[in-house]
Structures are given as C-alpha cells and as structure tokens.
Nucleic acid binder design. Structure first.
Lengths: 345, 345
DNA sequence: ATTAGCAGTCTCGTGTTGAGAGTGCTAAAT
DNA sequence: ATTTAGCACTCTCAACACGAGACTGCTAAT
C-alpha cells in the first residue's frame, strides 16, 4: 500500500468525520465550503479519486458523494483519528456515579453498561467477571429449606458464585457450618488445578457426598458463567438511519441477544491479545460474518496484569469512533481501578 | 352495548383470527371463500357494518377490508377466543428443560423467559422473585478482602440477597461468624415490620455499626430488587410487519429497556388483583400511554396464595392471544409448582 | 500542479394513469 | 324480513414519465 500524501489524509479524515455526523455521501464541494479549505473542489475531487482507487472510499452511484469503506474507517481509526479524552466534567460525573453506587462488582458492571450506552449513544456490552486462574478463598453453606442448601463460593478475585444444592438427607445449619469449616481449611488459597489434585480419601457418608459436589462445583466454577452479560442502550441504535431497514435492525438485535456469542467474542478478542488497550473491530474484520455491518470498540478490565472481563460498545460502521474509544477507555480504566482498589484494601 | 348475534360473533372471530395471521385488512369475500361460509359476501358486509358501528372493527380507508380495533381484540379475547392448551409433547419438552436445569430459582426464571419467547414468538419478560411479607430466615457474613464483607441474606421465600459492605475496621472471619450468629438469633423468622420494632440498645462498637447496617439492609430488602428483570425474544418482534417503521420499533425497545417501568407494571397489575389467572392488557387499556401499540399477557407465579413475581409476554396488538395465553399460563403454573415443591421439600 | 467550466450521469420527488380490490347501496329474490 | 346479485363508486398501489438538482469527470486554460 503506497503512502498517502498529507493532503489525501486530510481529505479522508474530514470526509470520514463529516460522514459519521451526517450519514450522507460527502461531496467535494461540501468539504471545501464546510472546512474552508484553501484548495478548489476540483482538486479535492482528484484526491478523492486517488483515495477511491486505494480502496478507502466508495461511490454509491456514479454521481454522488463519497462514503468511507471498511478499510477507510480502519485507516481513519488507526492513523488519523487522534485520541480525544473525555471532558473533565464528564469524567467527574461518571466517577461520582460509581462512587455513590453500592460497593459491589456486579453493580459496577451494570452501571458501566448504562454509562457506556449513555455517553457513546450506541449499545453497550459488559461481560461479567470471570477469571482464569482464580484461587479459592472462602465458602459458606447456608440451609435454606429442607434438603436445600445454598452454596456460596468466594474467589480471591472478588468473584462470588452462588448455587443451590439438594442433599440426600436433611442437615441442620450447625452441621453445614462444620462441613464448610473443613472444606475451607482444605481448599484455602488453592486454584482449580490444585484442587483437582487433592485426592481425598473419602469415607462413604453424607459429608463425603457434599464434599464431592462442592469440589466439582469449584472445579467447574471457571466455566460456569457467574452471571449474564450486561447490556444497555439498544434503543439508541434504532435511531441511527442505517437501521431503518428492519432487516438490518433484526440482525443487530440477534447479535445482541446472543449472550454466548458475545461473551465468546469479547473473551477471545481480549484474552488472546496481550494488548491491554482499546480494540476496534470494524465490520467483523472478515472473521465474524454476522458483524458485517457493525463495529465494536472493546477493552478489557482487571487488576494488575490479570484480565478479568471486557467492556465494549456496539454500533453501526458509521459510529463515532473517537468518542467511543475515549469512553470505553475511560470506563474500562475506571473499573480496573475500582477493582484493584477493592482487592488491596 | 347491545349483544351480538351468533353470526356477528362468528364473523368477528374469523376476522380477528385471519388478521392475526395475515396482518392485512380482511375483506368480506375473503372470509366467505376462506372459511366456506354458507352466506354471501354481501351479508358478511352487512354484519361487518354492524360490527364497525359497535366499535369492534375499523376500515383503514373507504374501500378496504376491515381490521379489528382494541375493543374488537378485547371482545375476541374475552368471549370468542376459547382457551387452547399447549400440546402435550410441547408441555413435556418444556418440563424436561426445567428439570435438567440447575435447581435454582434464578435459573428457572431466566429459562422461563427464554421458553416464553421461543413458544410465543414475541418478547418475554419475567420479574425476579420479590415477596412482600417475606420473613428473615438466615444470614451469613463472609470476609472477602480486607474490610470488605459479603452479606448474604436468605428469606423464607427462598429469595437470596447479596451485598458487599465495607467496614470501618477489618474483622476476621471468626468475628464475623460470631456477629452473624447473634443476628440470626435476634432476627430469625421475623418480617420487616417486626424487625423495625426491634429497638436495640446498642453500645458504640464495631458490632453495633455492623448490626445497624445489616438491619437497615434487611428492612430495605423488600424494596431493593433482588436482581434484574429477565428478558428475551426481542428479535422475534422485529420480524412482525408492524415494526417496519423504525419509530414504532424504537418505542417498543424503550419499553423493553425500562426495567423499572416493566417491573412496576407487572407488579402493580398482579399484586393488586386477586385474580391469579392470566391477564391480557391490550394497548395499555387507556392507562399506560407508552403501551398504546402493544399488548401484554401476564400471569403471576408463587407458592400457595403468595404472589412472588410475574411472567409475561409483550407483542404487537396483532399477536396470537390464544397461543400466548396458553403459553403464559403453562409457564407460570410450572414455575409455581417448582417453587412450591422446593419450599416444601 | 491546480482550477474553471461544462457536459454527462444518476437520484429523487412529483405527477399521472390505470388496474384491481372492496365496499355500499339498490332492487330483486327468497 | 332477510338475503343476495349487480353495479357504480372510491381508494390504493404499482408503474411510468419527467424535470430539477447534485456531483462528478474531463478538458483546456492558468
């Protein structure tokens, strides 16, 4: 790919920015008058022709303005966009919202989704906390009703798993507390791998049964999603003109309802990359076919070097990338900060 | 309102049913040929004119077929529709799905939303468990990290509340367990009202602080929603022709994203009525303006006579009421059954 | 290298027209 | 007194035509 001249970059940048705002093909004359360029529209037209040959622009029909292509957006995001920061007062406002929320990871995540949706004006996704190498911290068994027992597991990441067990015979709370104590001593600070290796010499007894169930649960706790993906701001998207065709709107909705796919997508993108920064996925990048008409801006969150989850926004190709990137970056940093703080306090 | 003749009822019933299927204005000729009526189209036209005068039908323009009005739908649902049962094999299938799910109320509710969406082909809503007169059952305090403590409260309904507290000073697990024990003895089997009356003579001490926080939490636990409203099947709706105008689609999406409003709507409808059956709300019934173009089919769930939550579906006015009612009835009965079972076991 | 000027192309809104669908009414039939 | 055949009438909708307007691409001049 040959390099672009400065002027070509300028034209591309202005065009993309303008198109993101107006959603209409941008003409050469419009660029000149709108941005008071010192060159004539004919010159701009020539530059546009070059940009089109390079695959950055596209003409909907012979005599219309230009629209960015996916490579066009990509070039813009990577080299031209520049990185805005969220205005300070907005940052303060968001911080305030988080500090006055309950001191609870789940609440933070749900709030993140809502904040992202509101400030980016597109749809937001936040995956729940799930850590790969969490260590067992603590466990409680609570009698709820008859043979039902609530098992609460706390991992060192702050993650909490909750599950109801049904036992073969009824045990009272004192017995349960005893069992919990034993397990806590046995398993404290071990990770799943180490728990696997605990080869227990179990007698046949209700205690053994419970132990077995619980160890299974703990071993699987990495797989079991600790909650659902948080989503918000769907209605934002339907205002965008690209979704006036109900067919497209439906496609996007389906992406949004498919928790599994989303969780997978976010996890894959972020766990597999060692880049802790913000990822921009434009039109599925030839890998995800369903996302042909959608862009994603993702970032991971976590404490220190541990990736614990992901936040992101999802919108049409023609979304405000600069605003999106800064919002996603700010929110992911903020959650990471809050989680780190809560882990070290 | 004068009574309708049998023939008028027949015409109305066929017309509504046909319109629900086709989404197009129904003409007199179509009814005659489609249902092999023994009367001529002219007679049907006369009957239609009567039905229109009674406010049950509406003509989009001078020379088109007829479409049901809201009162038309209402009459159909109340007097003409007849009550289907879900086919036995479908019932079995759904039961199977529930039995192989985890033994957990939250999982059941989330599954309910998905089952409802799938079988009714519209969007589904399920409110979380929340009981008005729950009694405190049991509480646990778990040290998570530093001054952070996880508070788990179990109510006799099986409902579980979870919340993180941050204490002024760090306490170890043994101390926490001691405090939990005291509170459990103090508060066991009391409801919020009774807890309110517990006028404690608290010394100034960390324990007092914790007790206060916890009692506040318990008192408020009725208000705090124990989780979110479960939703599913949004994409189903966008296939319906009424949502081809993006404006309408957006309205509906906004209803769907407004958890608070939904929870309120469902609770109000079902807690305030002593009718445990299925409610059909057509076009907001002049009370909810946002629901002008939407119908809801709702039912409560719970054990014995205690209403614990609501399940429902939400679709266009032109939705399949008979299928909807039978699905909602079946699912709400099934959850009630499962909850009752789990409470008595 | 840039630009003014202009012919050429395509969209889009508007207006027209005719076929088709369905009704309401009237008068005849049952 | 109902019911129905027949028919004039109304309204929508798809198809087509047409002209204005918006941009471009090219060429020739700067």
């Amino acid at each position: 790919m040959p390099g672009l001249t400065e002027r070509q970059k300028l034209v591309l940048a202005l065009l993309v920015r303008d198109y993101i705002e107006t959603a209409e093909p941008i003409s050469s004359g419009r660029l000149v008058s709108n941005y008071k360029l010192e060159i004539s529209s004919a010159t701009v037209r020539n530059e546009m022709a070059v940009l089109e040959q390079n695959g950055f622009l596209f003409q909907p029909y012979t005599s219309a303005g230009r629209v960015p292509t996916k490579p066009g957006y990509r070039y813009y995001v990577q080299r031209l966009m520049g990185e805005d920061q969220l205005p300070t007062h907005v940052q303060e406002m968001i911080r305030h919202q988080f500090y006055q929320a309950r001191h609870d990871v789940d609440d933070w995540l749900s709030l993140s989704a809502s904040v992202l949706a509101q400030h980016s004006q597109v749809a937001a996704i936040v995956t729940p906390l799930h850590t790969e190498k969490a260590r067992f911290k603590h466990l409680a068994l609570l009698s709820t009703r008859g043979r039902q027992v609530l098992l609460v597991i706390i991992l060192d990441s702050g993650e909490v798993h909750q599950q109801t067990l049904v036992l073969e015979e009824s045990l009272d709370q004192d017995q349960l507390t005893g069992i919990a104590l034993q397990i806590n001593q046995l398993a404290e600070d071990r990770n799943a791998e180490e728990l696997e290796k605990l080869d227990l010499d179990l007698e046949i007894s209700p205690l053994a049964e419970i132990l077995e169930i619980i160890l299974q649960t703990i071993k699987n706790s990495e797989v079991i999603s600790s909650g659902d993906v948080y989503r918000d701001g769907l209605a934002n998207m339907l205002s965008e003109p690209e979704f006036s065709e109900p067919e497209k709107a439906k496609q996007t909705l389906e992406i949004f309802e498919d928790h599994v796919m989303l969780d997978d997508l976010l996890s894959r993108t972020l766990f597999e990359s060692d880049n802790r920064g913000v990822h921009v996925i434009i039109g599925g990048e030839d890998t995800w076919d369903q996302l042909k008409e959608t862009s994603l801006i993702l970032a991971s969150y976590g404490a220190k070097d541990r990736v614990m989850g992901a936040v992101g926004i999802l919108g049409p190709l023609r979304m405000s990338y600069s605003r999106g990137v800064s919002t996603v970056r700010f929110v992911s940093d903020l959650i990471s900060e809050l989680i780190s703080e809560s882990m070290s306090s």
